[in-house]
Design a protein around this nucleic acid. Sequence first.
DNA 1: TTAGGGTTAG
Length: 574
Amino acid sequence: MAAWISSRFAAVARTAIKTLDVIINVFHLPRRYFCSPPYDYNTDDGEIAASTTDDPNASILTFGESLLYRLSLRIPQPRRSVYAANYNGRPRSPRQYNALIKVFGRLGDADAALRLLLEMKNPNVHCYTTAMDALFRAGRCQETEAVFREMISTGIVPDSVAYSILVKMYCFHLKHFVSAHQIIQLMADRGCEPDVVTYSTVIAGLCRAGGVDEAFSFMNLMLKDNCRPNALTYTPILQSYCAEGKVDSAMKLLNKMKGLGCPPDVVSYNVIIHALCKNGDFDEVDRILRESSNSGWNPDSATYNTYISGLCKMGMIEDAFNQLDVMLEKALQPTGVTLNILLALLCRDSNAMEIVPFLERSLELGLDVGAVSYNTAMTRLCETRECSAVLKLLSDMLKNGIQPDLQTFNIVILSLCRSGKLQKAKHIYQSRGFVPDTVTCNILLHEFCLSGEFEEFYQLLAEMSYKQIPPDAITYNIIVDGLCWDRKFSKAIEFVRFIDYGFNSDHVAHLAFGLVKGGRVGDLLRLLEEMKEMGVQLNGRLFEIMIHAFCMKGSCDSAEIYKICLVLDKMLGR
DNA sequence: TTAGGGTTAG
């Protein structure tokens, strides 16, 4: 066994060294950056040292203070470079305003986009629609419509772009296709003909909602209205087929598209290549790439990122590096996504201490390091219980003007919980402007259970309901665990009966574990009897979990063994 | 009008 572990370790180490070599070569990183001593951060009580700021004389901020200060800036400051590079301080013409509104919309900063629109004297239709799009991207539907109405009230006649954004909102966020259709009819009535983008938006929305048949029906309507589809109209359909595992149907449609007058473009091929990679069908990917020039398309960085990522996921690291070479030989630039794929590999195979200097150097080189890169690194550091390093990276993100996303904060909260700093985790959750999701709540609920803070546990559940944060299967399991740990066994049983109309095997497993651990074998036997009467299948996995619970409980003396036999009898239907 | 809306990779 020792020899096997030793050889396995050697293989992992070789892969890690190779990964690092490739990253260093691709991004032209001097090797010394990977030999530097561990980065300097304060390991005491989650404080971030002032060395993370530019001012060497700055006082030491606690993590909470530093974070609260940042979070209190509800509206992120505009990136200076955006202004400086383009407009020497302020936008002047409507076109400049529009470009800037678009930038903020893409950065997810709808407030900044809206502020710019409001400071304009006479915004035109372009500026209004770009601001609408920024609000749509931030999920702020009511305000999107409000800007649309405001535009009309100023006497501007909405064009197909403005209507298409409303259609997009109804399809993607509200999933109300009847309203989307009504808008299309309304615009036609008002003399504004829906174009290929308007129709393609609906088709993409229907596909996202799982309605491929409806998408085809809608395409017939589009053809009836003399609007010709293009590659962008068909690509969401290809995507849906692939998501349903119907890669053959996707391939057939792809081959049919040329004859339909809209040859597939690089994105259409990328969708197919992604599906083939997921199935491990790399021979077919090779064939498609070999024939690309004859088929009238050129692979781009996304094509190779998809391929390289697929190979990495299948553990084919050598092949992945070979494709990276091909990509670079074709003079395709490695993107932020390439960086993230390699970073994920580095996180998997290398020492966690290499990750921070790697990110720092990537930034220095001007690589497209974004929230995803930091999240990948922080997840790894959270797994290795390096909470201080996670906080250091959060600090770096803020310092470098990279907007943390919800996933970033969830990783930080998890990391704080795992290192016993529940108060600081709660501090983030309660910060002004922080919008938690199901994952945030699951992390905290689980932690409240572990630390026996049941009052907080029930309060958070009430908040989830109040804030309309939907629970998922993990939340249900945590609730079952929590009720059992709080010795509210009857409520736990009642709850499992209630979820999904009764006795989901995953939740039952949690309940069985809690009942055994709480010494409520009688309740468990009655539960198993009830399930049997209802025709619910009792599987071996459930029994394994219960035996595990008995073992965890210890004291496997004759009385406990007797109880196990009772449970086994019940399972076997005796 | 060389501005604004629909498809892909982590």
